[in-house]
Amino acid sequence: MKQSSNIKELILPKEGLHKNIFFSGKGGVGKTVMACITAVKTAKEGYKTLLLTTDPAAHIGKVLDKPIGDEVTKVEGIDNLYAAKIDPKVAFEEYKNNILEDAKGKFNEDTILTMEEELNSPCTEEMAAFQKFISYASEEKYDVIVFDTAPTGHTLRLLELPMDWSKQIQMKAGLSTEISQEDRKEKEKFDKVIALMKDKNVTTFSFVMYPEKTPIIEAYRASEELKTVGIKTQLVVSNLIIPKEEANTSFFKNRRHMQEKYLREIESTFNEASILKVPMFNKEIKGLDILIDIAEKIYQ
């Protein structure tokens, strides 16, 4: 296991570079809270930081205790922090409508129906939401982008195809199509961002889990899938650990003992990653003051 002293290097940009930080993991493990804590930390360190989520269940506004909408807004009460929620449904509808509008007048009704069926596949929503991230990352306006809910290996493989996904759909519909100059520029932008995501100096992929079997298995499967597209898991957050000093009843002693067993499993399973251990707190994690306090404690 790498020493925790490396962890700050995983969230702060190297000189002259930007930093992308992705948090992934199963639902309910604390991805959103960790993304907020990390974004607050990098902002406090003086880096212009954008916090994004594509998880419809995410509650970054509640955790920050600030209103967060679909457009990027400055988070009041802290310098350098901006945030936005990317609604996957809205992004999907925009994406689908753009492709179908472009197809109207070029193809017959049957072809357009076939394209619409292809567009309604489950991965298209994730693709559409992730494209929003790509547009932000391409602007290079921010020193750090913290992304709550990372794309799957499957989505990244689709983005690596030799033409963009809308052109793939046209091909699947039985059409041959030329790639326009505009399409090529868009693909170059995708390819640049994907290359940055594979560069460990620029991008940190992190899995959040609590020390129990199911989150470990799910994170391991997802990390193995990311390896197939050349992305290694660099950081693992072991969340909701019962503090040793609080394990003073038989119930909490047993729970702590169980967690220690799974912490060892996390360290052996993700032996190439740095491990960040985050304790369970006795109050709700909400508001900038508590986020700043926790960030200082866990990232010291």
Rank of each mutant, 00 (worst) to 15 (best):
E126F: 03
E126D: 08
E126L: 09
M127A: 14
F130L: 04
F130Y: 00
Q131L: 10
K132W: 07
I134T: 15
S135R: 09
A137D: 05
A137S: 05
S138G: 05
E140R: 04
K141Q: 13
K141L: 15
I145E: 00
I145S: 05
F147V: 09
A150S: 03
P151M: 07
T152D: 10
T152V: 11
T152H: 08
G153F: 01
T155E: 14
T155G: 14
R157K: 00
R157G: 07
L158M: 09
P162T: 12
M163E: 11
W165L: 12
S166E: 15
K167H: 14
I169G: 08
Q170H: 13
M171T: 15
M171W: 15
K172R: 12
A173H: 13
A173L: 10
A173Y: 14
G174F: 11
G174W: 14
L175R: 10
L175A: 01
L175I: 05
S176Q: 15
T177E: 15
E178K: 13
I179P: 10
I179C: 12
E182T: 05
E182F: 08
D183F: 10
R184H: 14
K185L: 12
E186A: 06
E186D: 14
K187P: 01
E188H: 10
E188D: 12
K189P: 07
K189H: 09
F190I: 05
F190S: 09
D191Y: 03
K192W: 06
V193E: 02
I194E: 02
A195T: 00
L196H: 04
L196K: 03
M197S: 02
K200F: 04
K200S: 06
N201I: 03
N201Y: 03
V202T: 01
T203S: 02
T203G: 06
F205K: 03
S206H: 06
S206M: 01
F207H: 04
M209V: 03
Y210S: 05
P211C: 01
K213S: 05
T214Q: 09
T214C: 07
I217R: 11
Y220S: 14
R221A: 12
A222F: 06
S223N: 02
E224D: 04
E224T: 02
E225V: 09
L226V: 01
K227D: 11
K227V: 12
V229C: 00
G230D: 03
I231Y: 02
